[in-house]
Design a protein around this nucleic acid. Structure first.
Lengths: 240, 240
DNA sequence: CGGATCTTTGAGCGGGGTCAAATTAGGTGG
DNA sequence: CCACCTAATTTGACCCCGCTCAAAGATCCG
């Protein structure tokens, strides 16, 4: 058992991440000083919000893990992203009266609700906040576009490798181990996100394990050879 | 020759579109009153901006047609969208010092440059503008996510149908014919956008023609049976 | 302990990719 | 205006990656 297991335990226990210090954190610090932020606990399996529900607040993920799903009228479904501590949910509904996607909790979460009218109010009083909100939205656009690139140009196994590297890099930024972590989502969710089928994801993971790039046991993943993983992806992922 | 050909001629001639009145137009009207907007003509084949170039301005497309391309370090390329009159380019670079993608002009364009420092300035003076900019960014996120859904859940031919319907609906909003238009991009660009190969797009178009849903001759497209097209896509497209 | 869900793995197939060639446009200079 | 060249598009033939269908563990829940 390596030392990197300690943060993993913290991760599992939903504790506050150790060393998080990303730009958005400052937004939240600001916002907290200027508005009532209600804290809401949502258990795994529950919806944070659903397509069609009125849009009243932005949701800051303080703890836990979620996915966002885009839906079509005829019942098709697409996972568009996974969210964890430090991420802001609901921004895609800004300018609308209702949410346009589902946010599903995959691991018990604590969500800080930022009522949108109060956010608008704060934007007027704190000029810097405008810049930061716009930057956060732009960041969201860039993230989505990088995944379009991955899905549009990489074969299945490399998409899975890119997914693992991205997850690792995000966990690392939160102070967790990048080499050893627990997947909070099922194969089907990963598959949907990567525009694959769950059997294909499973096979890709098995093959990456056979190559000794990773080891997988159900939802426990170890990245054994990050350079090789990065090489097979063309290094669009920011890890170390 | 049908009556819808008149707006097509206007479209071809790069004239100002007839009946445009979308939300963003108001932004621009506002902005023009509050800052110097420099008009820039860019010819087909030129870059409006390139990955890595300093980010200095937002670009409002007044006329012409462009594509945006996401790039990877190892040379892969993905078309992430097509832009026309009323669209705002460069928003994805907000919060950064440099652009993170290419914007390529496909049909001679007139671009209104909104220097970013002046935009920031205007944001402080015109509270409504904040809301509108955030809304425009959120709209961009939603658009991207709908395409993720299309690419993740529809087979090739239906992606192409969805693409044609989307293009038609955008042209219709600008006052052009939704049933008869000229593609401004090559098969390879459509293919990249839809995560396909150009031969597949070509075959899909040919097959849709055989079904008599459309007629295609090189870049001239007629939508003959929009209901059937919508049906085969599951109607995620807003056309009429 | 038993049932539901998730994951893995196999076997076989097919949609879309690859490779190649033919056709057509479009551009350029003679 | 035409000959030539380059680039875009279409179409065919073939093949392979990833999907489908199926079954067998594994895990978690009550």
């Amino acid at each position: 058992m390596d030392t990197s297991f300690a943060p993993l335990a913290a991760q599992t226990g939903n504790a506050q991440p150790p060393g998080y210090d990303a730009p958005l954190e400052l937004d939240i610090a600001h916002l907290q000083r200027h508005m009532v932020v209600t804290r809401r606990k949502v258990r795994a399996g529950q919806y944070l919000y659903r397509n069609g529900q009125p849009f009243r607040a932005l949701h800051f993920v303080h703890a836990g893990f979620l996915k966002t799903c885009e839906l079509s009228e005829d019942g098709r479904e697409q996972v568009t992203g996974f969210r964890m501590h430090g991420d802001l949910l609901g921004v895609e509904s800004i300018g609308l009266g209702a949410h346009t996607c589902d946010a599903v909790v995959l691991d018990d979460a604590e969500i800080w609700e930022l009522p949108y009218p109060l956010v608008l109010d704060a934007l007027q009083r704190i000029p810097e906040l405008q810049v930061r909100l716009a930057a956060a939205l732009a960041e969201e656009i860039r993230r989505d576009r990088v995944w379009m690139l991955v899905i549009g140009t990489l074969p299945a196994e490399q998409r899975v490798a890119a997914f693992l590297l991205d997850l690792a890099s995000r966990l690392a930024r939160l102070g967790f181990s990048a080499r050893h972590f627990i997947l909070r989502m099922g194969r089907a969710d990963i598959a949907s996100f990567l525009a694959l089928k769950h059997e294909t994801v499973s096979r890709a993971l098995s093959h990456l394990e056979k190559l000794e790039y990773i080891s997988v046991l159900r939802r426990e993943v170890r990245l054994l050879d990050i350079p090789k993983l990065r090489a097979c992806v063309g290094t669009p992922c920011t890890l170390q």
